[in-house]
């Protein structure tokens, strides 16, 4: 219902037109109480700038790193699976107790 998806897609296009490398992350599956709906999107460029969101802030940093790796290694796509946060401090995970899969892909 939010406006954001349109803004994200248009920004991806203009980033690419200005010569940046752009990856898109999409939530493809969720279980439990994940905050973002299936289809939520985030774009990340080769400098690590990002727009949009795939969670309530829990896994964004990790997704951004993976997007940068994707660009660096000249890969085209990757599937990521995030589960419930474990107890160890600083680890990436979903504090909400949800579980989600994110698909990242290069737009080329």
């Amino acid at each position: 219902m939010t406006k954001s998806s349109e803004t994200i897609l248009k920004s991806a296009n203009s980033w690419i037109e200005s010569g940046q490398k752009v990856t898109m992350a999409t939530v493809i599956e969720t279980w439990g109480s994940s905050p973002c709906q299936v289809g939520s999107k985030m774009i990340v460029n080769d400098k690590g700038d990002f727009l949009g969101s795939v969670s309530g802030g829990c896994v964004e940093a990790n997704v951004i790193n993976e997007c940068l790796e994707l660009i660096k290694n000249k890969n085209l796509f990757k599937k990521m699976h995030f589960t419930v946060q474990d107890e160890s401090a600083w680890s990436v995970g979903l504090a909400c107790g949800g579980e989600m899969k994110v698909f990242i892909e290069l737009i080329n």
Binding site: K10, N13, M24, L106, I107, N108
Partner: peptide
Amino acid sequence: MKIEILKEIIE
């Protein structure tokens, strides 16, 4: 995703 598809979605 191919850029052509992104452009087609926007259009």
